[in-house]
């Protein structure tokens, strides 16, 4: 047993050795480090954009999702009857949880900021408004519009879709853009590491030759390069991620909770930028390994 332990202690720590087998290369190391940092920085911003767009889309579709409005435009003497009929129809519509006719005074108060206090709003033929609350799943807007038309010809349903749709589409477009950016950043990182690894392999042709001659397998030689580029990329990506996370954290908050969503990460979303260095390192590992093995094979 003691013999075994002594032997184990004397076993070369391959990883320590492997790092020394390839001579250190100054400039390409720095460039890899810096490019990895820049890519990670951009990736964190793209992630922040994706999450913000997501939240924006959610809040915009939620803000107007469970409300609708019925507008009744009719001669003053008919208005009250039509409002009553609309309320009856709404009461029997599945999906509608509450319907409330907004009193004329409230409507006037809503309009006051637009017309000024001096205009005799009461004398204008202002349509009556009915605020409708719906369940999350909404209701059959088309069916309701038809029934309303039959019961109260002056009533018009507005389910806010007109407002909602372009906003939500913008947010979804933004999110798509962010995801495409992330994919491009990943691809560019892989390409950069491949080029750097190929340069290193070419510069160390003699080292590779000697290692082959003394009986090193391809994977052992490849590992020397893979370790170096993976660690370098990881270090660069960690720095870039840290900088970008700080920048995002200190962005001024302009969220009002409804129309504008907070730009950046919130709560558990902060775990995502932590993935950036890991993904960068894995990308570097795979790219270097592929570059090294294909080059070593071609040298046969």
């Amino acid at each position: 047993m003691k013999q075994f332990l002594v032997q184990l202690a004397q076993r070369p720590v391959l990883s320590l050795w492997i790092d020394r087998i390839v001579p250190p290369a100054g400039q390409s190391a720095q460039l890899t480090l810096m490019t990895a940092a820049a890519m990670a920085f951009l990736a964190v911003f793209a992630l922040a954009l994706a999450f913000s767009a997501n939240r924006l889309a959610d809040s915009w579709s939620a803000a107007f999702l469970d409300t609708a409005t019925v507008r009744v435009s009719a001669a003053p003497e008919q208005a009250e009857t039509q409002v009553k009929r609309v309320l009856e129809v709404l009461a029997t519509t599945p999906g509608v949880t509450q319907a409330r006719a907004i009193p004329a005074e409230e409507t006037q108060a809503l309009l006051a900021p637009w017309f000024g206090p001096d205009l005799p709003v009461a004398s204008l033929p202002i349509p009556r408004l009915i605020e409708v609350s719906t369940t999350r799943d909404g209701f059959d807007a088309e069916g309701l519009a038809l029934r309303l038309q039959a019961e109260a010809p002056g009533a018009k349903l507005d389910d806010h879709l007109r407002w909602r749709r372009p906003l939500v589409e913008t947010a979804i477009g933004l999110r798509r853009l962010a995801i495409v950016s992330l994919a491009l950043i990943g691809g560019a990182t892989a390409a950069m590491v491949t080029l750097a690894a190929q340069a290193a392999l070419a510069a160390n042709g003699q080292v590779i030759r000697v290692l082959h001659l003394i009986g090193a397998r391809d994977v052992t030689i490849a590992r020397a390069f893979v370790r170096r580029f993976t660690l370098r990329t990881l270090a660069g990506a960690l720095a870039g991620t840290a900088l970008a996370a700080l920048a995002v954290a200190f962005l001024p908050v302009v969220a009002d909770g409804e129309v504008l969503a907070h730009l950046g990460f919130s709560g558990r979303e902060w775990l995502w930028p932590l993935c950036v260095p890991a993904v960068a390192a894995v990308t570097a590992l795979l790219a270097t390994r592929a570059a090294a093995l294909s080059r070593l094979k071609s040298e046969a």
Partner: peptide
């Protein structure tokens, strides 16, 4: 020895 994974 190192590339063969043998003890030094």
């Amino acid at each position: 020895l190192v590339v063969a994974g043998r003890p030094v």
